[in-house]
Design a protein around this nucleic acid. Structure first.
Lengths: 149, 149, 149, 149
DNA sequence: GTGGTCTAGACCACT
DNA sequence: GTGGTCTAGACCACG
């Protein structure tokens, strides 16, 4: 029989990339996808560069207080998406800009199209729409203000 | 035994919103979501205006060659999203720009943020990113060039 | 073919009970129910007393800029609920506290029970729950501060 | 021809949440909403705690003698309401107090306001109103007196 | 096994 | 006619 998942997240020690990631246990979005999103965002913002190894499954699992399988699943999705790879020593490493060769990937375009349509359908003006996206874009890009040329 | 209904959509007489919608029966995206997306796009592009009644469940179901319940589900999602409402218990009608009146709705912003991060993480330049979105935005907006003040 | 409903609400002249009612054309709640709710609230708060005639269908329809049938439907629901009756001159008049004889009416209790369960299920504390209801109760009761013993 | 499935619910072996739920096949309230209400009530009363998996669609469908799709629809509504989530794509699990974490959610407040107004409009005294609600609140909360720290 | 989806046919209430 | 609901049986992807 399955162990009753403890509802308590362990008091995460703020180390390594852990602190970058935030898990909202009350969000409807599955935790493994939150992890994926966070890591993708970190890559996009430059906080995680190509070649950087991700924290080990156990490590991140402990830091965030989530199940090890959950982290595994997140890493797995990242690999399928091409954002990370596994080196010969079993570690997951960031693959950087090579991911899917910067082609817009039909899926991405479809999703973006859907989102734009939805904005328009909600009555948001075209120019207003691009303005808002610009604001969001600025926000997603600067979570790592610690200088590092 | 009943004839196996051809999966091909009947050559729909070009009336109402029917022709606007296209269903790809081989897409991994569920049909009911394709329908939803298509109608949202039609609203966003102005092809469907506030107050316009959607085709009846049976009508659209016949036109597109999909089951009545599938269309029903699509309409149901649209209602939950606030894009359509049900006219005094007799018809689905477009609610247009009403849907939460242009407030970005946290979900939309989250999805957009995710998409932007993903683009950046794929190594696409920021300016390139906005350029591409601009192109997409133009594309989603002009399926109804027939002037009508 | 059906007339295309004008999306424009007429500039309502603020008279009579009209001003008490507010219609949110962007709400997912059907307009006729909004009207019903508003009138029930007015009765509950004492702004509308037993014996008071409701404004005529056309009058209210014009004041609020909603279709005459919509108002009719709202009044109809109010009659079915027992809150108003029709006098011999065809006018709708408030029936006051006699409505359904102040018995809790199983439906009301069921709805209330459902709402309480939902609050609890959302994790709201019991005492907090009654507190909030108390606040709401105060709010619903005083929309008519114009003295009238 | 297939046997007309008896509308009577099978004498469910008293396990899991099944027995908690009761379906009234003659009620005007749709079955899927009755199921939803029952599960919400179970969550609210503490009979179903966060993390608990709901019975599988097929299981509950058999226990209650309702169609699988009906149960599916109920679970779907619960998910949209945020009360349950889907475990790594394999099971519905209770999300408990997570659902928007005790924020009253405008809809809930509106519904409550409506109910209070209705009570007042029926001529029920304010103090009497809170008294009745208190009684109901007590009733909804104690179906699980079995101690379990 | 699980949920997710699609199709199918039926009956209801409302207008 | 309309939408709303329920039942039924089937196939899929995922573990």
């Amino acid at each position: 029989m399955p162990l009753p998942r403890s509802p308590l997240r362990k008091a995460a020690s703020p180390r390594a990339v852990g602190p970058i990631l935030q898990v909202d246990f009350r969000s409807p979005r599955p935790i493994y996808l939150q992890l994926r999103d966070g890591i993708v965002a970190a890559i996009g913002s430059g906080a995680l560069r190509a070649g950087t190894p991700l924290p080990s499954l156990r490590r991140l699992s402990e830091e965030l207080g989530v199940n090890l399988h959950t982290v595994h699943r997140a890493y797995d999705v990242l690999r399928q998406n091409g954002f990370v790879g596994v080196d010969r020593s079993q570690r997951f490493v960031v693959r950087g800009a090579s991911a899917s060769e910067a082609d817009p990937s039909k899926e991405w375009e479809d999703a973006q199209r859907r989102l734009l349509s939805e904005g328009l359908a909600r009555g948001v003006d075209r120019t207003e729409l691009v303005r808002r996206i610009g604001v969001l874009l600025k926000a997603v890009g600067n979570p790592a203000p610690h200088r590092r040329p």
